[in-house]
Computed example of a mutant assay.
Amino acid sequence: MRFHSRKWVKPEDLNPNGTLFGGRLLEWIDEEAAMYTIIQLENPGIVTKFMSEINFRSSAKKGDIVEIGIEVVHFGKSSITLQCEVRNKMTRETIITIDKIIMVNLDEDGIPVPHGKTQIEYVKDRLNKND
């Protein structure tokens, strides 16, 4: 799994127990999944359709740095299915896992449309194709 972004847990991210609020972490995951999908499908018209069971395995506290890992598990006709793991950057302890996040490719009218992708592409490779 590739870890694409990091977040610093700040006081405003904490719940009353003094640990990272789960809703904040899910917001970060949803944003990361959307950005990853936008880059993969080359379309800013993306929505989250589904998230499977969310498994909270440990917590994070103020000052921790967490990193969000995303991996493609399936390319559908108009969707892409991702897997996610969030871990503590310093200890490598897993904080949360989500086995399935389905993101859908939309046209200008908000209708699901085929994206034509079948494998992961990297921006650097796209740039090299245009040379």
Rank of each mutant, 00 (worst) to 15 (best):
S79R: 07
C84D: 09
W28R: 08
E27A: 15
E85H: 01
I65Q: 01
S58T: 13
I54Y: 08
F56W: 02
S5W: 04
V104P: 10
T81P: 04
G45Y: 09
V66I: 07
V104G: 05
S79D: 04
G116Q: 05
H74N: 14
E71S: 13
T81Y: 03
E53P: 07
R87Q: 06
N15A: 08
Y122S: 11
E32G: 05
V113E: 05
D13P: 14
E31I: 06
I39K: 12
R92K: 02
E27R: 14
M103S: 11
D13F: 00
M51K: 06
N15R: 01
L106H: 04
E31L: 07
D99S: 15
I120H: 08
A60T: 07
I80N: 06
V72P: 12
A34N: 03
D30H: 08
L106W: 14
K61A: 13
D64M: 05
K10Y: 10
K117G: 10
M90Y: 09
N43M: 00
R2L: 15
R24E: 09
D131Y: 14
S59M: 08
Q83F: 13
H4E: 15
W8Q: 15
H74Y: 12
D13M: 00
Q119G: 07
N88F: 05
I95F: 03
K124I: 14
K49D: 09
N88I: 05
N128M: 11
K61L: 07
K117Y: 10
K117H: 10
Q40G: 00
N43S: 02
L26H: 10
F50Y: 12
R24G: 11
M51G: 11
S52F: 00
M90C: 03
D64K: 00
P16I: 07
I65E: 09
G63C: 01
D109W: 15
M1I: 09
M51F: 12
